[in-house]
Write a protein that binds this DNA or RNA. Sequence first.
DNA 1: CACCCGTGGTC
DNA 2: TGACCAAGGGT
Length: 322
Amino acid sequence: MLPWRAGAGERADPYRVLVSEVMLQQTVVKTVEPRFHMFVNRFPAVEALAAASVDEVLHAWQGLGYYRRARGLHRAAGEIVRNHGGHIPDDVETLEGLPGIGAYTARAIAAIAFNRPVVPVDGNVRRVLARLAAIDRPATKLAAPIAALARKLESDFRASDTAQALMELGALCCRPANPACGTCPWERCCRSRALGLETSLPRPPEKIRRPELFATAWLARRSDGAILFRRRPDEGLLGGLIELPSSPWCGTNAIVEPDFGTGFALLPGSVRHVFTHIRLEMRVMTGQCETHPDGFFHPPDGCSTLALPTLTRKLLRHAGLD
DNA sequence: CACCCGTGGTC
DNA sequence: TGACCAAGGGT
């Protein structure tokens, strides 16, 4: 039983279901759990979330990745308060109209929080259904037949439990590798099992290649010890988050001197970080700086109030800070 | 539709 | 250590 779910005979809090489902997008339960508790403690209801600033929400989202989700959730809260009287919509169509809520999340909220007879299809359910019906198609053409099958499974019978049970079946039994078919309630009606295809379906997608990029980060400290930071653009990678100034990320591994400050020296070693589509290696230079036109200074012991991506945390740690 | 968007756990 | 991958959405 997950902490944001309703117990037996209880009714799930739709706001908590909304927050948890957005956090769970491409993020495992174990990672989400502690972050969920922090988040709903800080923003206990949709009104509190809507009233918060984007920076507060990004800070609460720190380390979870896919930071666009935090912006979408914040905007969705605003729309829910403004257009829906502070009540989370209970129908798929309205939910899908909210920012950051797509086909899966809309159905997950409708089913889990409101017991609507819909079947949310996440990665687990996609795998369960692809195997059950032995749908042998490339990953890019799986969506339509899976959605059609999911519609046929819609039922008024305990829709909330059914939705969670399907996902759990995929996570615990119908696993990507080493599926535990012997314990599966659907073993005898599974087409893949009958055909001996249970481990070869669904077909794995082509693997991605990450280009390797390099950059130099500049850790500049003012005479009072404050550190120079800058804010990234709202759109794109790590949108709106705070980082150390650095050279542009490029394909050649060269140390780049800053065009500001004084006394910069290279730290030994480097920091590696892997994004969805980029592999990055950064060197760190430390030096002094008193003013900067684009950045801002922040005391080192107050970094906990900034929305720093994990890359920046690694860089600070590499320099012996944080 | 292909591509963009993070991170931490696991093997 | 590296590849894989997870309760996806937006463009």
